[in-house]
Amino acid sequence: MLKFLLNFIENAVSDEAVLRPPGAVPEKEFLDKCIQCNKCLQICPYDCIVPAGLEYGTSYGTPIIIARDVPCYLCMLCPPVCPTGALDNDLVEKEKVRMGVAEINEETCLPFSGIICRACFENCPIFRKAIILEDEMYPKVVDEHCVGCGICEKVCPVEGSAIIVKSNHNV
């Protein structure tokens, strides 16, 4: 009964997956393991990790990344500090991070309407691998290389961003 109620509340408040810090284990396991000790928030030199607000329901207080505000710059300082293994302690290579996959909205993306823009391509930390240019013009996300850091989402000049990282953290 109580579980049903909690599930109901959870479904009512959060239907979209959130970006977790790099190295996060799958969402269910992550919520079991995270003790909200705030160490990942505190070690992050860019202050990109913030505690989830009340709108996230029962995952209130757990660390999330809002890429449009401050994306993850993949300094890889937070995975080793996690005491419970909610973030994979052994993760050091930024190429192996899988926070999500960026998706380009071709309707608002500038090159698709004829304006030259290389903001996401030039700023991608997995340079020339995760975002490639087709015909030297149109950006394209390569799913198997994209780490989901959200830097492209941050630098996109389009209002509301034409490239948005979809978290794969609801598995």
Binding site: E29, D32, K33, I35, Q36, C37, N38, K39, Q42, I43, V81, P83, T84
Partner: peptide, 27 residues
Amino acid sequence: VGTLYSISFWDLDIVDPSMVIQTIVLS
């Protein structure tokens, strides 16, 4: 870095034992 749930002094990690029980019970 840390709070009283868990705190690190350089590389030394200290965790509240009750959090260990919670993590074992949940995960």
